[in-house]
Design a protein around this nucleic acid. Structure first.
Length: 475
RNA sequence: GGCGCGGUAGCCAAGUGGUAAGGCCGGGCUCUGCAAAAGCCCCAUGCGUCGGUUCAAUUCCGACCCGCGCCUCCA
C-alpha cells in the first residue's frame, strides 16, 4: 500500500509512488540558512522530512533526498562581516554545527547537500534562460528581476490570484512595499540577481549583468534542477516558505525550462509554538538543541517531542512536553524489552537495522504502520503502538519476533533510537560515601540510620534507587 | 482585506455518520523496611456556540464566536 500524503498545491490526499520508468523517488527540501545555530522550529521541519524519507524507505522506495545549504544571502553576509570572517569560513562553521545537531537528532544525511555558493554558474544559466525567454528583465543597476506577470499560473501553489492583486502596495503591517528600491517594474517582481553593493563586501560574483550575487529563490530552483531535474517527486519546507519562496521556485523553474510541473507533490509542515507563544528572539523562547540538552533533555527526547504532533498542525512545544516525551520513550523501551525477552533477542540485535530489514512481518503493529502511511499520522501511529504494547496476550517466540519486526520498522521510520541512555553525571565522592553508608545500614536493618542518610542524600540533590542487590544514584 | 490552519478531558494529542485512540499528570491497588521504580486498575454521556440534514452528528451543511499562520527573502 503506498503512502498517502496531503499535497499543498492540489489540496488533496495523493499517493506517493515512483513515476513510470523511474527507480528513485526524488525529494527536495529547503535547508537551513547557515548564519547561526538552527532552532527547534527549524528542526521540527527537518525532522518531519526525515520521518517522511524514512517512511518512504520502509515502504520500499529508493529515495534521493536533496537538502540544500543556503550560504549566501543577506544574513550570512551580514553575519560573516560581523564576525570578521570570510563568508566561506563563517558558513562552514555553522554548517558543521548544523550537521552535528542533525546527527544528534538522528536525522539521516541527505544523499546530496548542495551549497548555493557552489551553484552560482547554474543559477546564472537559469537567469539567462529566463531573460532570453522574456520572463526576466535587467534593471539599470545591473540587477535582474523575475517578471511575475509573464508567468502564467503564478500563484497556483499559494492560491493567490495575482491578476487582481498586482498592485498590492502595502503588506500586512500596513507598510508600503518599496517597489522602487531595486527598480522593479512591479511590486510582485522579485530579484533573481542582485547587483553588487558596498555592504556585500567581497561577496560578489561576475555575471553577464555585472558583479553581484544571486537572489534567494533562484538558489533552490537551480539546485533542484541540477540534482533532481526539471520535474521531481516531492518538495518540502516549512509552511512559511509556501509563499513567496516556493511559489517563486515553481515560476522560475517552469519558465526557465519550459516544462510544466515542477514538483509533483508539496509537503509543508506547520510551525512550532513554544509554551503557547510564537517563537521569537524578543520573547527569548527560541531554543537551540544545545540549550535543551543543557536543561537535561536528550536529543532523542527532543526528537520525540518534535514529531509527537501531526505535521499539518502547529505544535505547542513545552518543557512539560519534553518530560512527557521522556516518560513515553521509557514506556516504549520497556515494552520492547519485554518483547525482546520473549523473542530471545538482545537489545543490540534490535538496534541493528539489518535485522529488521530481513524481516517482512508486521505482527500486531500492522495497523500502526497503516496509520503512519496515511498522511504521515505520527501521533496516531504512536497511539496505536502504545495500544499494542499494552496488549497482554501471551505471545509465542515467533509472534514476538514478528512484533519486533513490525515495531522495529516503525521505530526506524520515526527515527526513534532506543536504549541510548547514557550514564548521568557521576556522583561526587561524599555522595558515594553516604550512599555506601546507607546501603550498609540498610543491610544491617538499621532503618533509622538508613532513613537519615537518605534524607541527607536528598538534601544534596541525589536520589538513591534501591534494587534487590544494589542501588543506583540519580540526580 | 486576501489565502490558509485550528478549537476534543488538568496538559499534550489522534480519530470517526452509529455513540470518543494514545501519552503525560492525578487517584486507587500490588510489590517493596522507607523512598523510588515497575505492574495493574480508574479517570470526557463529552468533542467552541447556535441552527439544519439524518433513524443516528463530535464527525456532513450553514451561520457565528475564539485562537493562530502567511500575504515579498522567517522551517
Amino acid at each position: 500500500m503506498p503512502i498517502v500524503l496531503h499535497d499543498t498545491l492540489s489540496r488533496e490526499m495523493r499517493p506517493l509512488s515512483l513515476k513510470a520508468g523511474k527507480s528513485t523517488f526524488g525529494m527536495y527540501c529547503c535547508g537551513p540558512t547557515v548564519y547561526g545555530p538552527a532552532h527547534i522550529g527549524n528542526f521540527r521541519t527537518f525532522t518531519l522530512q526525515d520521518v517522511l524519507r524514512r517512511t518512504l524507505e520502509v515502504d520500499g522506495l529508493k529515495v534521493k533526498h536533496v537538502r540544500n545549504i543556503t550560504d549566501v544571502d543577506d544574513k550570512t553576509i551580514r553575519g560573516a562581516q560581523a564576525a570578521g570572517q570570510t563568508l566561506t569560513d563563517f558558513t562552514k562553521k555553522w554548517t558543521e554545527k548544523f550537521h552535528a545537531d542533525c546527527k544528534a537528532l538522528g536525522l539521516l544525511t541527505p544523499q546530496v547537500e548542495p551549497s548555493a555558493v557552489a551553484h552560482i554558474p547554474q543559477q546564472i544559466a537559469m537567469i539567462q534562460a529566463l531573460v532570453e525567454r522574456g520572463h526576466a528583465y535587467v534593471s539599470k543597476d545591473g540587477s535582474v528581476y523575475f517578471k511575475v506577470h509573464s508567468c502564467k499560473g503564478y500563484g497556483k501553489l499559494s492560491h493567490i490570484d495575482f491578476s487582481k492583486q498586482e498592485t498590492q502596495a502595502t503588506n500586512s503591517a500596513g507598510e508600503a512595499n518599496d517597489a522602487d528600491e531595486y527598480e522593479r517594474e512591479s511590486a510582485s517582481d522579485f530579484a533573481l540577481w542582485k547587483s553588487r553593493k558596498p555592504e556585500d563586501g567581497n561577496n560578489f560574483w561576475p555575471s553577464p549583468w555585472g558583479e553581484g550575487r544571486p537572489g534567494w529563490h533562484i538558489e533552490c530552483s537551480a539546485m533542484s534542477l541540477a540534482h533532481l531535474g526539471a520535474t521531481f517527486d516531492l518538495h518540502g519546507g516549512g509552511i512559511d516558505l509556501c509563499f513567496p519562496h516556493h511559489e517563486n521556485e515553481i515560476a522560475q523553474t517552469e519558465c526557465a525550462t519550459g516544462i510544466n510541473g515542477f514538483a509533483a507533490h508539496w509537503f509543508h509542515s506547520a510551525h512550532l509554538l513554544v509554551e503557547g507563544e510564537k517563537m521569537s528572539k524578543s520573547k527569548g523562547n527560541l531554543f537551540t538543541l544545545d540549550e535543551l540538552v543543557a536543561k537535561g533533555f536528550s536529543p532523542m527526547e527532543v526528537r520525540y517531542a518534535l514529531i509527537a504532533g501531526h505535521y499539518r498542525t502547529s505544535l505547542n512545544f513545552t518543557m512539560k512536553g519534553l518530560e512527557d516525551a521522556r516518560s513515553a520513550l521509557g514506556k516504549i523501551e520497556r515494552g520492547v524489552e519485554k518483547l525482546l525477552q520473549v523473542a530471545g533477542f538482545t537489545k543490540a540485535e534490535f538496534s541493528v537495522p539489518t535485522v529488521m530489514e530481513t524481516q517482512t512481518a508486521w505482527g500486531r503493529f500492522a495497523h500502526a504502520w497503516e496509520v503512519l502511511q496515511h498522511d504521515l499520522n505520527i501521533p496516531g501511529c504512536l497511539g496505536q503502538v502504545f495500544t499494542m504494547l499494552a496488549d497482554k496476550s501471551e505471545l509465542t517466540e515467533a509472534q514476538a519476533r514478528h512484533d519486533l519486526s513490525g515495531l522495529g520498522k516503525i521505530l526506524y521510520a520515526l527515527g526513534l533510537v532506543l536504549f541510548t541512555e547514557v550514564a548521568g553525571p557521576s556522583a561526587p565522592a561524599n555522595v558515594v560515601a553516604l550512599a555506601a553508608q546507607r546501603w550498609s545500614a540498610k543491610q544491617a536493618k538499621d532503618f533509622a540510620a538508613a532513613d537519615r542518610l537518605r534524607k541527607e542524600l536528598t538534601e544534596l540533590g541525589w536520589t538513591m534507587l534501591d534494587h534487590k542487590d544494589g542501588y543506583d544514584l540519580k540526580k
